[in-house]
């Protein structure tokens, strides 16, 4: 393996969980809901993903368990904010704290146990190509899933009727309601989708990134994903660019230090954030487009009049 290959592979692993969590949250926010509980859903996805894989010995079961845990957590959020109409910001924060605590409790008996690694897909012929093989065709299923989900979300949001309904719900929930769409049901579905993605992101951490369970192993990645969505102005491909840019600058920061050029480590640690924000603000320079993408009803409660 050449050094470049190693760096590219590391960048892809570092970016994938961010992309997965961010793309799910993007759909949630496009439907007009702000779920600050990404970190909590993610960490639950990690612990349940690890537990599922450890108990059954199958990484596939782990992925499904992680996804399920994310959905379950998001439905708690959905019930509170959509059915009981609680404050979304407070509920989201509570979901994060709840997730961190509950995952620690569930994971207590799993700390320090050997994990099951999600194996890479091997495509005969393609995966054996020099350089291109390992970089493009040698990843596990979740890396490809993150790309596929991004493309799918972009397509659904802009090219399909379902996407139109989601955007209408996020843009003006009263109008969507007046047109006969079930705003609460649409939002429930989006919240669940966001939970599924966050759960997958967590499962990726516990099954592929570092195959083990450690308390609080998400270490703030849910918050980075949340920020990516906003700075990418709710556009799917920009989220992908942001996630990969963040991953790239972060890994390059480590790489440069290893070479010993002597750039202060504190600056290198701050760079991913600075570069990603600057780049996304620059590419989101078109104000009309930004305004069009911004869900006007984000965070606002909606109670259907009966």
């Amino acid at each position: 393996m050449t050094a470049l290959e190693a760096v590219l592979l590391t960048i892809i692993t570092a970016s994938t969980p961010l992309l997965l969590a961010a793309i799910g949250e993007l759909v949630v926010e496009r439907s007009g809901v702000l779920n600050l509980g990404v970190e909590g859903m993610m960490v639950m996805g990690a612990v349940c993903g690890f537990a599922g894989a450890h108990i059954t010995g199958s990484a596939a079961v782990g992925v499904v368990a992680g996804l399920g845990a994310g959905v379950a957590m998001s439905l708690v959020f959905g019930f509170l904010t959509q059915t009981l109409v609680t404050n979304q910001v407070a509920t989201g924060l509570a979901l994060t704290l709840f997730g961190l605590g509950l995952s620690g409790l569930i994971g207590e008996s799993f700390t320090g146990l050997p994990g099951v690694k999600l194996t890479a897909i091997h495509i005969p012929g393609l995966s054996d190509l020099p350089f291109v093989g390992p970089v493009l065709f040698g990843h596990d299923v979740l890396v490809y899933a993150s790309i596929a989900i991004t493309v799918l979300v972009a397509w659904v949001l802009t090219r399909t009727r379902i996407g139109l309904v989601i955007r209408a719900t996020g843009g003006n929930h009263h109008s969507a309601h007046a047109l006969g769409y079930n705003v609460v049901a649409v939002r429930y579905a989006c919240i669940a989708f966001g939970g599924a993605c966050a759960g997958l992101a967590g499962a990726y951490l516990a099954l592929a990134y570092t195959p083990q369970w450690i308390e609080n192993m998400t270490a703030g990645r849910g918050w980075i994903a949340l920020a990516l969505v906003v700075f990418a102005t709710w556009a799917p491909f920009r989220v992908a660019v942001g996630a990969y840019l963040f991953g790239t600058v972060w890994i390059m920061g480590l790489y440069v230090q290893g070479i010993g050029i002597g750039i202060p480590a504190q600056l290198l640690a701050a760079l991913p954030y600075l570069v990603t924000i600057a780049a996304l603000v620059l590419i989101s320079g078109n104000r009309v487009l930004t305004k069009m993408n911004t869900p006007a009803c984000i965070g606002q409660p909606f109670v259907p009049d009966r």
Binding site: A219, G220, W250, I251
Partner: peptide
């Protein structure tokens, strides 16, 4: 002090070098 993901990245980069 504690971020399994970042520590893993650093280890990968170092081994790569």
């Amino acid at each position: 002090w504690f971020d399994p993901g970042k520590e893993a990245d650093a280890a990968k980069v170092l081994i790569g070098q």
